[in-house]
Design a protein around this nucleic acid. Sequence first.
DNA 1: GCGGATTTGTTGACAACTATGACAAACTGC
DNA 2: GCAGTTTGTCATAGTTGTCAACAAATCCGC
Lengths: 404, 404
Amino acid sequence: MVVAVRAPHVRQTNLTIVLDHLRRHGPSSRSQLVSATGLTRSAIAGLVGELESLRLVIEAAPESDGSPGRPSPIVRVDDRHVGALAIEIFVDEIGVAIVALDGSIVSSMRLARPRERVALAATVSDVAGLVRRLERQRRVHRGGGLERRILGVGVSVPGLIRESDNVVVAAPNLGWTNTPIAAVLDEALALGIPSIVGNDADLGALAESRFGAGVGSDHMLFVTGEVGVGGGFVVAGRPVTGHSGYAGEVGHFPVNPAGQRCTCGAVGCWETEVGERALLRRAGLDEHGGGRAVEELLARAESSDEVTLAAIAEEAKWLATGITGLINVFDPDTVVLGGLFSRILPIMRDRLDAELAPLQYMGVPRDVLVVGASLGPQAVTVGAAELAFGPLLADPARVMNAGA
Amino acid sequence: MVVAVRAPHVRQTNLTIVLDHLRRHGPSSRSQLVSATGLTRSAIAGLVGELESLRLVIEAAPESDGSPGRPSPIVRVDDRHVGALAIEIFVDEIGVAIVALDGSIVSSMRLARPRERVALAATVSDVAGLVRRLERQRRVHRGGGLERRILGVGVSVPGLIRESDNVVVAAPNLGWTNTPIAAVLDEALALGIPSIVGNDADLGALAESRFGAGVGSDHMLFVTGEVGVGGGFVVAGRPVTGHSGYAGEVGHFPVNPAGQRCTCGAVGCWETEVGERALLRRAGLDEHGGGRAVEELLARAESSDEVTLAAIAEEAKWLATGITGLINVFDPDTVVLGGLFSRILPIMRDRLDAELAPLQYMGVPRDVLVVGASLGPQAVTVGAAELAFGPLLADPARVMNAGA
DNA sequence: GCGGATTTGTTGACAACTATGACAAACTGC
DNA sequence: GCAGTTTGTCATAGTTGTCAACAAATCCGC
């Protein structure tokens, strides 16, 4: 059912647009907001005033910029009063963080863990413990200072997430199947705020598009090399999630029918040719060697080891193959490479460009920017927080008035 | 610049929602509109009244359905007063048609043409001639009857279209490059209505999603087998066009690096393995034999010719490979197969299902419906008209009041 | 056939929001 | 200090959907 628009929706939408503009473009004067939104001065005054009373933005004294006329007050996002709890679940570690509305990480904690503790119960217990420690730390640091309202909980999981009920349908590396992580976590944390769960690559894509290398892009494709390969497509700041939220599983995109069998059962998936395992294998290292093996590989590349450089060149070739397919299907203006891919990008840049050039469709120049991610490992943290901030951004007044 | 929402936008949006609902779900009573949109009875009364005075809908007498209460008048799309001109440019023929607001084809004409006339000038001159003949026929048939206002011109071209200025960037089968078809056509037709150009596969996707096999689907993927392979993805009734309008070129999606060289220059594109040329080649027929060769192939399949059936089975295998990749990337709820694929679907159904089953991601059931297209060759006609109706659907009052 | 229950259309008062225009405030440049 | 320019503020007006009350049209049971 398509819900129609009602009169108050106008206000809600315009509040969102102003807040969003400030988050994306940084501090702006009121008059800049007027020209950016097309609204009148009075409308902007009302909207900024309401956001200010919701403590979501602050107005600073006008600064004269040398041009004639009365100077306009500067409005910026107020990063002091609200926050999101970002929870990251990886195979080898878990992390929790408090993220402010401007995307900055206020405080965070990480915990390495042995493979025996990846099961649901152990994971949730470890996360709850970490959250309690973070809370204690916050209380000490605050020292009578600011109370930051936590508005949402965003959870990153390396697996397939069903959007409708936040269930982890499959997370092969964790051994989870149909795991109701959100429900279990909500009970353990008892914060009274429902968690929202997302796929790690999708969250990375979201963060890069809003605060990282994808800022300014309309149609961004994010491809990240972790143990496997993940991806996400973001149109106009919104992730394309697909019917159930499973979109972006580019790792299992068939590129080589003569290739290797994938963990998913099919043959020749993209992630059998690119990503950590494929690269380590080609470089003659243990493909299950994890982070330590990757560091070894990068060191060897640094010292121009031939086998290693050849492996990276091969990686570039297959990366280009898949990216070409995705460009033909999605037509992005920017492709952001994350994770392992962004680390080896400087080394494989030339080869990658050379492989991409002739593969363009019909000789038509596609004008696609291929760049490395700029947020690094923090992308997932920020992305999880963005997920948690979703309701606030969609309807600022409702969310802020709810718990006040 | 994101334009903010203003008060009149509410009405515009609600008019669109009501009109759209009637087009998609067929005639509805006012009370059905109330529950579908969430608006009040008074609001619906106002909206329906305005659409009626714009001559876009008609209200029929209430029909009692046996339930208690006052019966509600039936509202349906008025298909008599407005229309779109759909122009289809193929390699071997061109077609023009008048399509009503409800998606029905009012009148149409086709013209087969020799390969010598595919150049821009000859094409436009042939199209203009055909449009004039259609106009004459309309005038005769009308016989003092209804005047149908033509609100837009939609043009289908088998090539890459730049959305921003309706230029055909590349149409290999026509030999066109950077061809400003819309501008030239506007001058030749002199209708005073700007043409909007779309890719044939994208238009087929749009039509199937609104009036064909994709009705009711939220996330539809359309894959059509013509000489090459085209595709389109439609989310919530809107085509995903990409940054420049090039999205959906699934034919040049790399599936077999050990395969054949494609006309685009790359190796192993999907359309080297599936589509008319690939199928004819495998069946031992002339791959450039066109429609006649396809009919021969279908006849042989009918009489259970072994080579032909093996070729179709191979087609099913490669079709499944590509579809799997697209499902993993897009997560559609429905995949609609068009063109050649829908014709051979009954023959390859079992093989296709068998190939698709094990290729699902991580053993998670994906619950994707794979169906044949239901509009046949009319899909492109209807899709071109939908493109032309775009402005009307986006703002009914403005468009109808403009030329009145 | 008749009255009650139910559903729906209509009408007018109301609320929410933005637009408009007049005026005041704050700055630059001369 | 004054003219010119830009911006904030305020009151008023216009548009649109909501709400509540009432009228209309149907079904059902008697």
